[in-house]
Design a binder for these strands. Structure first.
Lengths: 248, 248
DNA sequence: ACAAAAGTGTTAAGATTACACCCATGT
DNA sequence: ACATGGGTGTAATCTTAACACTTTTGT
């Protein structure tokens, strides 16, 4: 959502400012993002919202995430602010979304702050907003043409996520509490979009000390039962701090 | 500058939105930033400005830079957007800056987009704006308490610059066309705030191929004359692209 | 002649990559 | 029993880090 039809100046929101969230989840070895389908259309967009006068921009992003996923204490990171002049075409939007919101009173332009979130897929209850019929996970590889400049925003979010990965371990927020080494590896493969050698991966992860092997295996997989691991939160956060030595 | 006393809604600027620039230069082995001293005060701030309705945010940042430095085609990068509720205290500002702008009509809050720029120190003609008496280079280690939340913005800019350095070579925009290896090294030392071994540094830079040694030395230094180098722009940009393999 | 900075090579340690076979499980 | 994915070690290469003396220049 880019802005609000009630976005006349003087109300309780910051005019011409919006935020958009790229909410990443991980399921079945695939990276997913949450998308919204606008009412009575086949038009999709990223979840977004406005910034109220009496909340910080970070709080606004957390509010949007809470509304769409039901989750609080989400890993949420601002990655870029999009301020080009022609981020959307009012005529095109009037055609596509006119029956949901009249764009008559839309701003001629808006600036949008981009956030990405990493969440545990299984914990999310996707929840559409008042403009949309559907909120659902979409495979990153199957994202359709989106409204506004949201494909570009998504692209930049993925870049930022990959870059983040070079400084910080990843997974604490995207995986369930107990996970297997192949699951963690497939997460890295999905984010980096490349194959990783399982021996080298395991070596690196174990050396970093961010995970602890449990005395448990995951059963019911029709194959050899993989060990379960959990993150060593303290060590994990230490590595987050120095930022340094981490890529796969 | 946070916003504008003419910032009433409906004029030609985006209300409650500003931008702030951290302009880095390098001189005498020290990192410097451009600061503004507000009229008839000893209060300092980062250069900043507003975003016009008919310009992109990037264009607005370029405009501000042009106005403060005289330079165009500057290396300019957005690094963070600052959206906390209490980025400035109107009462305090009224006391300090009331004689320059009445804060009566200031917004209760504004969101500011942070950019950093890397410029060739020697090419800059610092130029105050209408609210300020002085625009000058200040040693990064001697930055005073700044107005607004500008010390925090500066801190984040430095972090971003360091992080950038891990992905991209640095220097093309901060050094003159011809430079010596020790100059380049001191730039890295200044940015990273640590000592670097000159042998290892030279090896790494030469291997990356981003510089070319000229058949010239720099004379008049009362010591052994260092070779001059210039950047190999194509190779430099190649390394910028892959981002990968670059830190010191 | 001296002081100050520039220039340069080797070695050891650590990190990264490449690579292939056996094992455990559910069907 | 078999098909499937899980689990594991070693060797070669590359990268990084540590380290000190000679050269050149202006004064």
């Amino acid at each position: 959502m880019e802005d609000d039809s009630k976005g006349a100046v003087g109300l309780d929101l910051i005019p011409q400012l919006s935020l958009d969230c790229v909410i990443f989840g991980f399921h079945d070895g695939l990276l997913k993002i949450l998308l919204l389908r606008w009412k009575e259309t086949e038009e999709w967009s990223l979840p977004g919202g406005i910034v109220l006068q009496r909340e910080s921009v970070d709080d606004a992003a957390n509010r949007v995430l809470m509304e769409r996923t039901g989750l609080t204490e989400i890993f949420l990171k601002q990655f870029h602010t999009f301020g080009d002049l022609h981020r959307y075409d009012k005529k095109e939007l009037q055609d596509k979304l006119g029956h949901v919101i009249s764009t008559e009173h839309w701003y001629d332009r808006a600036v949008s702050i981009g956030y990405f979130a990493l969440v545990d897929y299984a914990m999310v209850f996707p929840n559409p907003d008042k403009y949309t019929d559907e909120c659902k996970w979409v495979d990153l590889k199957e994202v359709p043409k989106l409204l506004f400049d949201h494909n570009a925003i998504l692209e930049k979010a993925i870049q930022s996520l990959r870059r983040e990965l070079s400084f910080q371990p990843l997974g604490y927020n995207l995986l369930p509490e107990k996970f297997t080494m192949p699951e963690l590896m497939r997460l890295y493969e999905a984010v980096l979009d490349k194959k990783i050698d399982p021996r080298n991966f395991q070596k690196k992860i174990l050396k970093s000390g961010i995970v602890i092997r449990l005395e448990e295996v995951k059963r019911g997989l029709a194959h050899k039962s993989p060990f379960l691991y959990r993150f060593d939160k303290e060590r994990y956060e230490e590595v987050l701090e120095d930022g340094g030595l981490f890529f796969v």
